[in-house]
Design a protein around this nucleic acid. Sequence first.
DNA 1: CGTCTGCTTGAATCGCACC
DNA 2: GGGTGCGATTCAAGCAGAC
Lengths: 406, 406
Amino acid sequence: MINNIILGDCLDKMRSIEEGSIDLIYLDPPFFTERKHTLKNRERTKEFSFDDTWGSDKSYAQFLKERIELMKPLLKEEGSIFVHCDKSGEHIVRAILDNVFGSDNFQSEIIWSYKRWSNSKKGLLPSHQNIYFYSKSKFFKFNTIYTSYSETTNIDQILQRRTRDEHNKSVYDLDVDGNFKPADKKKGVPLSDVWDIPYLNPKAKERVGYPTQKPLLLLERIIKLVTNEGDIVLDPFCGSGTTCVAAILLGRKYIGIDKSHEAVKLSISRIEKPIKTESNLLKKGRSSYFNVDKTALGLLSGVEFNPVQRNKGIDAILIEQFENGPVLVKVQKDHESIEEAASLLAKAMKTKKSKKSFLIQTRLNSSLFNNVPDFDGMIILESPALQIKRTNKVLHSDNFSGELDR
Amino acid sequence: MINNIILGDCLDKMRSIEEGSIDLIYLDPPFFTERKHTLKNRERTKEFSFDDTWGSDKSYAQFLKERIELMKPLLKEEGSIFVHCDKSGEHIVRAILDNVFGSDNFQSEIIWSYKRWSNSKKGLLPSHQNIYFYSKSKFFKFNTIYTSYSETTNIDQILQRRTRDEHNKSVYDLDVDGNFKPADKKKGVPLSDVWDIPYLNPKAKERVGYPTQKPLLLLERIIKLVTNEGDIVLDPFCGSGTTCVAAILLGRKYIGIDKSHEAVKLSISRIEKPIKTESNLLKKGRSSYFNVDKTALGLLSGVEFNPVQRNKGIDAILIEQFENGPVLVKVQKDHESIEEAASLLAKAMKTKKSKKSFLIQTRLNSSLFNNVPDFDGMIILESPALQIKRTNKVLHSDNFSGELDR
DNA sequence: CGTCTGCTTGAATCGCACC
DNA sequence: GGGTGCGATTCAAGCAGAC
């Protein structure tokens, strides 16, 4: 039984699992989306599918309730259950769990939040799913996870030091540059119930072609939270087997059940050689993608633009187009001469088919005899600081001591 | 009725509101978090018929249901309702809304996520609340709000139009010369259903005995999403009046109801107070979130200056003096005309004995025939954004409506 | 009114060319 | 020849509209 993937309906198969033997049950049942889900693998050789049409909430509730009722006795006293669902069925799931496990044992509603491709739907872009965390008793096992400050979350806000202003009001403590002062070092923030974990990217090698495949990272976090090494994890709707793979990678035992033959085969093959892709985003953190200077964007406040993070020639692209081409904006950097900046921008204009661009000059020309190359469609503007510098130079020309660099 | 805060139970007071007159109802009813244990012991026989699932917690469900039933007729056909709750009552709220408005009119589960200082409790740190968004009909009003692209998005690349090749594979759309065709205007990413808005708690003392005061930013976003100027917003549990204040600030009409005398008094005082106070709060909320506070100083990056914090006339004083007097710098604010800004700066010049100052203009002149007063020693510079706007206006007299919401 | 086919588009990794 | 800049690629618990 243990460390196996079992073919069949969990309603039957769970009866042969020993009572009080399981530490964690994670289930990702059909979501009550009222549609059929199919997906092909990368080579388009196999098709995986499952049916999530029910007709009424009653039949869905019935289906789920009789299975969840079987799960409770399987758990140890200090065990927990995590049920994955989304907005279409959350209230039904919640009602069943309250009924079977008792509302006293409701621990958390976890929000898995992610970024996703968008579409032109009228309304808000759905970008989260819900996971309900119930314990069997109040003696549940729980390993507090502290999030490090270097993670993808917007940590600088937590770390802002606060002070009292003249009215004894709590405000953020700013230094002379208007930057936040960091707060004292803390041991970390206990994990919150909103989890920002990237969605399985279309290009990720981890992807196996099973619909609704969950990121390994999500399952690893759940498993770490409520189990220790050697504990047993049960997934009664194991699908592509992500839960079991995560359990193996973390040194836990597993039992997986699925009624689809294809799913069982896929799970077994994944277990034989577990692939975990290192997500660049997770490894490096969201902030590592920021190339664009905050001051550079500050210069543009008042026009609509999209910042560009990964192209040296451009800092922003205006929302408004010009002659069907993009309007590019670049801010001269401290380390760039105006000639260098202009030629980088000119190159970008060419590749992006841009017919108009703005270069914002931030420093005085280094050489008096330099001619800034005149590129077609490129308009050179001066930053306010530069205008001030230039005006100052003209007004009191006795002071040529140099630039007022900071 | 309109533009008033009404004392009384909304169950009675809503009966005097004209049917089909309201564009948006936002309610933040009591969560009854202390009494959530009364939700248990649901009768097994009735648990999945959602009309009376709340069997054993009749009082809360009954309380909410009879009020929400009164709300539906008040809405216009294109109106919407937003109901705020948290994990303790979400499934009850959801069931009532499904019942009264119909699951077809369920639009979104909005997750309001915020960061919080921890208390070391066993379990995950609760840091979100739920807002359910239902429309009265499928003809609901909806203003899409666009946000920035993810840092990891190759925004410069998605400007290239794509198509499908014969294998249904996505490729760039190239013309006969092998050059890519530019894509249509990119507006940004539609707002998602997870809203990361800081939980600001500026008035803790006044909140005693009330549901938590919501950030103005949250209400502002909801109101913008489903109403236009002049529309009517109803808050039947208005508490401290945040909804009404947000409505006023956005040019909407409001009706607030609360059965607490204290709450009504508080709401009225907030509304009567010079709107500027709340307006500042709104700005503060936004700036601590979006960090645009620093743009004024960012415009100056490259010259040496000291920022000036509490003076309407000046934002900075340059380190370099002019004729033994200080050189003042002011940035035109969103709410200031250039004439106002100039006269504020002129006044400051007088008191500070300044013989030279810079005014950085950030917005186009509102009137074509306005002459900016010519103050002695004041030099008016244009911000880069303004220069871009002006250049674009000359080239194609398009209108930039405002900043990207992010 | 299900079901099937076509149309989109952002996120994020892949991988080549170039210093 | 190894890092890295940036162009290429992939596909979605999608959406809309036809049939």
